[in-house]
Design a binder for these strands. Sequence first.
RNA 1: CGGGGAGUGGCUCAGCCUGGUAGAGCACCUGGUUCGGGACCAGGGGGUCGGAGGUUCAAAUCCUCUCUCCCCGACCA
Length: 589
Amino acid sequence: MHRWSELFIPTLREAPADAEVASHKFLVRSGYIRQLSAGVYSYLFLGQRSLNKIMGIVRQEMDKIGQEFFLPALHPRELWEESGRWSVMGDNMFRLKDRKGTDMCLGMTHEEVMTSIARKELRSYKQLPQIWYQIQTKFRDEARPKAGLLRVRQFTMKDAYSFDIDAAGLDVSYLKHYDAYCRIFDRCGLKYVVVEAHSGAMGGSQSHEFMVRTPAGEDQIVGCESCSYAANLEKATSKLAPVEDLAAAGDGRPLEVHTPNMKTIEDVSKFLGTSPKNNIKTLAYMADETDPENGKAKLRAVVALLRGDHQLHETKLSSALAGRQTRPMQEEEIKRFFGSPAGYLGATGIEWAKDLGDRERPVLLVDKALEGRANLVGGANKEGYHLKNLTPGRDFQPTIYADLRTVTAGEDCSNCGGRLRIDTAVEVGHIFKLGYKYSESMGARVLDRNGKEVAPIMGSYGIGIERILTAAIEQSNDENGFWLPPQIAPFEILVTPTNMKDDILSSTALDIVRRLEAAGFEVLLDDRDERPGVKFKDADLVGIPFRVTVGKKVTEGTVEVVRRSTREIQDASIAAITEYFEKLLRPSR
RNA sequence: CGGGGAGUGGCUCAGCCUGGUAGAGCACCUGGUUCGGGACCAGGGGGUCGGAGGUUCAAAUCCUCUCUCCCCGACCA
């Protein structure tokens, strides 16, 4: 029997001063967690119980499609050099040396370790497909940990990896995970959306994120109000209303106009009496062209062109560059490259790379919204001057056209024309098709049906365990505390006798707890010698979805059952209390 | 990494400007009265004022350095 008086449940009347978001405040106030250092937390009794239940659900569903492993968190440097991520991960990876001075790191994910097992052991297509997963501590030296358990440096992740002989097999493994994830989040009682996500620099082809909408989130997701379209902002597209091009001025060739001190699109279009939609926004970046072979650091100029009223999305920019890192050009670099200060930049008069493989010349990325447009206004690369009549493909040759712009709320869905909305959300799960990146670079090979050596195709799938708890709290809280779905709450029922010194109340409460426990419920008895008000306040705080108040009504043979989420109170017969909760919590049986 | 803020008892915070040797509420311990929404009375314990150095007769308070934490931004397979 779990007696509150004997347990360590350090509830706080006030939230710690440094807590901002609801889940952070309540996790600390309810005695679920305590902070050790920035982004590093201890999980106490209630918190660990809840996380254990979440992991139990994850394990059950994952066991249906895969096999549980447990891999080391401590990895040798060589392994990460094989995949190239020792350098790619940069400061986000915790690194250390052992006593011999050998470089080691703490795992951020386990593609390398899993692949190292696969390459040693997998020999034949007959052994495929394989799905291996684990629930493990992950370490990421986040530049800025924040918001309690939302963004931390040490956390628990369920990560899974699939190995298939071909893309069709990967499709199957991917779908299995998609379905398993839906079951997991459903069973955890989360309201979530699945969005298309960009698959990142790792050469992935398809990717979905499982998101929980909450203002505390750090990701932005786009959703259609009319159809099922949903995507991460860094991937989302929309349908744009057509724009009328300006009539050609003069002979139709680029025409220089004097625009003194007109440095912004707004100024220029006002000055010329045009709309920003007929302007070209020119943004200058430097991309990392470090040679992966010899590690020689190199930068290359990248210029992005967008419609004047559009915003660049830097992740899209990076994706368009096959994952290269970018940063805005500095003032000096701009002057050197364009021969003009910012405000008058344009794409004319520069010889651009023909494709991304052409590593010598600068890259010109043009947003798709400018494809087919004509007679636009843009900078002349000359202080105080802009050009009219600019037509992409004629006056400058784009390296590629790409989707670079940020979708904004209220635009039309490219699927159905419905209205798009944007919400912030927390990512609780992410699945994606890795392709051959790890199997190829790390030398995993199996023989296919024809006896030919091929690299297996991989997928990788993650779930943030603590984020499920955090998201659940963000979804269900009020000024007094929070409530968790029974499936992931540390206890399903809290039994609160209003006065422990009253023998009838305390013995009735004990009896109720015994019977509920015998019936398989997870029950916490608040047997503390506290005033009722104190117990009720704590009961509201700690996330347990149901409370049984054992009070005056015992003389009538009843107790009160309080549903935390709605505050709804029902009298229930003491004699039939187990049946009452059977109906409520185990309706399928 | 850039910008901002904060470190004083377990928690929330005052005191700092204007230097004189630390205080409130909550929590905790003892006794009593209470007992359906964070009780009351009486008594009590607990603080290297984040750390180091400096100025001064005297430093929580002024100066320098440093560590830690929080917020905004950058970053985020």
